[in-house]
């Protein structure tokens, strides 16, 4: 038995967490896996963000879609979910799916083959992605958990959302370490952004006010090989 189990979940050493009583695994690549549902959740892929910026004259590399899909493919390959749920802002804008180069489309379609796929709509992509299969929903409830893009105000038991791109910072030995994170308090969860070009917003920002029970808040920060659970008291703004 490892230290964490003996400590009744206070500092989980694995990426295992509970949300409103349900067990979920936080993958350090930024995806959430619900074993009993065989469901993989990713949020804020922001596919085609590079080409979206290019339209405005910022010629960012056009490879972000490829990088994001490669990482998603690796996660799917490891966990073999029967359902994938993309929790909104899957494309950076409504034209994204249409702009996606052919071979990236092929790559995505290959990932979708043989499993259920749910597109939850987000503020960046309020419409269903053009020309792609999969089910589309604004909000969906599965087995006592509610999935939606934007977190609803106030404490919401069992809600899993995205949108805010949570990130956290700690200072250790005079050095700041910033990472994307799963933001959770045992009742609700906000997913990190999965996209290759997505930035993050510190969980201490005003935007998170009132969403969590702070005394039980934990930022599950994404490390290179595992997730690190850091309680709210150790986090810093910046």
């Amino acid at each position: 038995m490892n230290v964490a189990n003996r400590m009744s979940g206070f500092v989980p050493r694995t990426g295992e967490i509970t949300i409103a009583g349900q067990v979920a695994l936080c993958d350090p690549r930024g995806a959430l896996f619900l074993p009993h549902l065989n469901l993989l959740v990713v949020s804020d892929l922001h596919l085609e963000k590079g080409s979206s910026a290019a339209r405005r004259g910022s010629l960012l590399p056009p490879y972000d879609t490829g990088a994001t899909l490669d990482r998603l493919a690796a996660v799917i390959d490891d966990l073999r979910p029967s359902t994938v749920l993309s929790l909104g802002d899957s494309f950076h804008d409504d034209g994204g799916a249409g702009r996606m180069p052919g071979f990236y489309r092929e790559k995505l379609l290959a990932l979708m083959t043989g499993r259920d796929w749910i597109w939850v709509t987000g503020n960046h992509d309020p419409q269903a992605p053009v020309g792609l299969p999969g089910m589309v929903a604004e909000e969906i409830a599965i087995d006592g958990l509610r999935f939606r893009h934007e977190p609803s105000a106030g404490a919401q038991s069992g809600e899993i959302a995205g949108h805010l791109h949570p990130g956290a910072m700690v200072i250790q030995r005079g050095r700041a370490v910033r990472r994307r994170c799963f933001a959770a308090d045992g009742d609700r969860l906000i997913m990190p952004a999965f996209g290759a070009f997505t930035g993050s917003l510190n969980v201490l920002d005003r935007a998170y006010h009132g969403l969590f029970r702070w005394e039980r808040f934990i930022a599950h920060m994404l490390g290179n090989v595992r997730v690190y659970a850091i309680p709210g008291g150790r986090l810093r703004m910046g």
Binding site: V170, Q172, V177, R179, G223, Y228, I230
Partner: peptide, 10 residues
């Protein structure tokens, strides 16, 4: 050593 630092905090 970012990961080392995170693990130290834990």
């Amino acid at each position: 050593a970012d990961d080392v630092l995170l693990s130290e905090v834990e």
